[in-house]
Write a protein that binds this DNA or RNA. Structure first.
Lengths: 156, 156
DNA sequence: CGACGTTAGACAGGTGACATGTCGAAGTCA
DNA sequence: TGACTTCGACATGTCACCTGTCTAACGTCG
């Protein structure tokens, strides 16, 4: 029933081939690989958004404000991610000896393990995709995405 | 202060060049173009997620369940989007004459205008990107994203 | 040195976009 | 007719953000 007489926006549900949709789906697909890998290694509580914490955390410790700035989100949002990770033992917050207002976020051993897994998985994904497309196409893909981003940045 | 001694995961904040991150950023950039275009035409309440509604809505009307199925989300999530759009006058829900359980979601004139804008903007974006990359590279990009998706699907 | 504007982060509260689970009413099929 | 399914409503929860307010600590400048 209601077999559809004309589908507006995109040309239907089967294969939207819309470039933006493709980009999103490809991202989700690759991202899931990391999440699954972490879950398999016992880090199920680490969710995609937390990569922003580990990604921008230096090993000398980093304040929430700096993390927020680097990840381009508000301090509150970042603080929440850090609280979650602290509750599960992935990071600790210690007072900054140089600034009594500030607290430094530091990775625990457990947190370091997450970083290790991510460091192992991320290049593996890149490599997998490179094999899939071939080195030339992969380089072109990377370049083209950069081109799109630069164009969007400058027109914004 | 705390200039960072070594950044773990990716190689820093400036240009992560990580393929997944690039994909995400490119998607967000293109998506924003649509949202901005809609906002400029007075449809500020229409947000990215709502595209799923308009995209899969046939002009003969479609039930929430069907929309949810097409958009690959739960009925509840889709129902929420529809409620929001109904509250703002973009769609109406009328009883399905053929099924007394069901209600058909229909676009109002205002909703049709959103579709019109989207129909105008989406190809424009595609075209813009195509010009940016050249036809060959654009075709390759599209193809490569498809390849990634198929590979991810089959390995999942 | 002390007042003043800035910064760090805690806390309160809110939103958007999903999820699950339960339910009654309506449809379908044996 | 009864058993099962489906439609959509409602309640509730989660995740990843947001704004706004507040206090303690900091830095500067007169």
């Amino acid at each position: 029933m209601s077999k559809s007489s004309r589908i507006p926006l995109s040309s239907g549900r089967e294969r939207p081939t819309n470039i933006a949709v493709l980009l999103r789906e490809a991202f989700v697909a690759l991202n899931d690989v990391v999440v699954v890998a972490l879950a398999e290694r016992g880090h199920a509580v680490v969710r995609p958004a937390h990569s922003a914490v580990f990604q921008y955390l230096d090993d000398t410790g980093t304040t929430v404000s700096v993390l927020a700035e680097r990840a381009q989100m508000t301090k509150q949002a970042m603080a929440e991610l850090v609280v979650h990770l602290e509750r599960h033992g992935y990071v600790v917050r210690v007072p900054d000896p140089a600034d009594r207002r500030a607290k430094l976020v530091l990775a625990t051993e457990q947190g370091a393990d997450v970083v290790a897994v991510a460091q192992e998985v991320a290049p593996a994904i890149e490599h997998r995709v490179e094999q899939l497309l071939g080195a030339d196409r992969f380089a072109a893909l990377r370049e083209d995405l950069g081109t799109i981003l630069r164009a969007a940045d400058s027109s914004a």
